[in-house]
Structure formats: structure tokens, C-alpha cells
């Protein structure tokens, strides 16, 4: 545990975040180790995606801070923040491809903005990235011509175009067929091992995510409910963790959104 903290790429320090009147995190502390796959899991609405947005500096903490490689993200200037983001890749839930650009141009986009590579080299890199996600043949298509799962794979190719040091995956497995899912799983694993990437995977597909993760971050009730390896998570006797793993309806995490008693409301 100590060595992990020392080699943390992302450090979350007493993070409190509030959206409108709702408290999402209340003094959460933790760290994401470099070069590993960290799974961020937890019940819906606990702010897993919010965590990714805080790391990427798209949201600012209410109190506390998120440090990336030692730098407090929300204190960076606008220019420094954009430079930092060029070192991260993010795969959005929807894919978020640019609809007016072809698949090829979508993947080429980060290269064109951030590098001075000539056209031939860009072509080479883009085709290599598309080959990695199995969509080299679709290079000339427009994103709308692809299925949701394929769009996500193009988005992954775009996210790794600049060979970032960290990739954040926001629900990468949603809407994937079993083949696409298996491919994505092995791709995340391979990228992590071959390139020494740090990966953060936010997902509800617990079994799949835990099968590739080295490290689990479980968020529930505004705090970190569990940190450790997938094996330790399964062995944990914390009722919260157990409820989450077994999918139990009753337990520390309420199934019902807070409200008046049913009997009182229908009277």
C-alpha cells in the first residue's frame, strides 16, 4: 500500500464536491497507482464519472484537491490545463466522435493539433491505431455509419492516438456485443501492459472489469467504500461491498430514492 501511494499518478486529497445542493464526495482521499488498471465501481449516481471529470479538470472541487503527477489540477492555468490534458486520453460513454469528420480524421485530429507530423506519418499512425481496434477498413466512413460499439472503438483509437500516459474509460462496455466486449477487455489490458499506461475504468460491468483490474476503487455514500485488489474485494466482509458484489437489494446502499413512506403517499 505504501509503495502504491509513493508511485501514485493521481492523488485525491480530502476531496469534497457538491453539485447544486447535492453532496457527491465528502472528504474523499485515495490514490490511483501508475502503470496499473484501476477499476472505479460503485452504485449508480455515486459520482464515478464525476471523478474522471475532476481528474481531467473539467470540474473544480468544492474543497480539497486532485493532483495529477504532483500538480493540483484545478489550480493550473487554462493553457497549462490544456497541455496536461494532451497527456491524458479519455474515452467518453457516448464515444463523442466529431460528427462532421470521417473516422480517419477523428483519429488524426489529436495528431494534427498537437504534433507537426507530416501527412504520410499521420496516415501511418492513424491506420496503426485503427488496426489495433479492428476498424482500419472503416477509415473513410463517417461516424454515423457505425454502430454505437464501433464508434466507441474509434473513440478509443482516437484516445490512444497521442500515446498518452493515462487513459480514462467511462463505461466502455455499455452496448458492446460479446465479441466487442472481449476485444475491448483484452485491448485495455494489452495497452496497459505494452505501453505502461495507467488506466482508470469506470464501469458497471463488475465481472468483466474486475477480471482485468489490478486495483479497485469502490465509491459509495460520498466516500471510498473500498480500496484494494479484486481478490481482496471479493474476500471483504464489509456489508456494503458484499451487497454490491451480490447485487442485493437490501443493505447499506438504499434501493429506493429517499422520499416519504409509500403508505403515507398513497393515502
Amino acid at each position: 500500500m505504501v509503495s502504491e501511494t509513493q508511485d501514485a499518478l493521481v492523488e485525491i486529497d480530502a476531496l469534497t464536491f457538491q453539485r447544486d445542493d447535492r453532496l457527491i464526495y465528502d472528504g474523499m482521499t485515495g490514490s490511483i497507482p501508475r502503470g496499473r488498471i484501476t477499476a472505479v465501481v460503485g452504485p449508480s449516481g455515486t459520482g464515478k464519472t464525476t471523478l474522471l471529470r475532476l481528474i481531467g479538470g473539467q470540474l473544480k472541487p468544492t474543497r480539497g484537491e486532485v493532483r495529477y503527477a504532483g500538480e493540483a489540477v484545478h489550480r493550473l492555468s487554462r493553457d497549462a490545463l490544456f497541455r496536461l490534458r494532451a497527456r491524458m486520453g479519455m474515452l467518453f460513454q457516448s464515444g463523442a466522435l466529431f460528427t462532421e469528420l470521417s473516422v480517419f480524421e477523428n483519429v488524426a485530429f489529436p495528431l494534427r493539433v498537437h504534433t507537426d507530423l507530416d501527412e504520410e506519418l499521420i496516415r501511418f499512425v492513424v491506420l496503426m491505431k485503427l488496426e489495433a481496434v479492428g476498424l482500419r477498413g472503416a477509415a473513410e466512413l463517417m461516424p454515423q455509419a457505425l454502430s454505437g460499439g464501433m464508434q466507441r472503438r474509434v473513440a478509443l483509437a482516437r484516445a490512444i492516438a497521442l500515446d498518452p500516459e493515462m487513459i480514462m474509460y467511462d463505461e466502455p462496455f455499455v452496448g458492446q456485443d460479446p465479441i466487442g466486449l472481449g476485444m475491448l477487455l483484452s485491448l485495455i489490458k494489452e495497452l496497459n501492459q505494452a505501453l505502461g499506461l495507467t488506466s482508470i475504468v469506470v464501469s458497471h460491468d463488475l465481472k468483466e472489469t474486475l477480471s482485468i483490474a489490478d486495483h479497485v476503487f469502490m465509491i459509495a455514500n460520498q466516500r471510498l467504500a473500498f480500496v484494494g485488489s479484486p481478490a481482496a474485494m471479493e474476500a471483504s466482509d464489509d456489508p456494503l461491498v458484499q451487497q454490491f458484489l451480490s447485487g442485493g437489494r437490501d443493505g447499506p446502499v438504499a434501493f429506493h430514492y429517499p422520499g416519504p413512506r409509500f403508505q403515507d403517499q398513497i393515502r
Binding site: Q58, R85, M88, M90, S94, T99, F109
Partner: peptide
Amino acid sequence: ATEQLASLEMIGVD
């Protein structure tokens, strides 16, 4: 709405 602006930001483009 389709997160294209957010993804531009995350690519490091304002």
C-alpha cells in the same frame, strides 16, 4: 449534448 465539446477539452483543445 453529445460530449463533443467535452472530448475536445480532453484532447487538449479549447
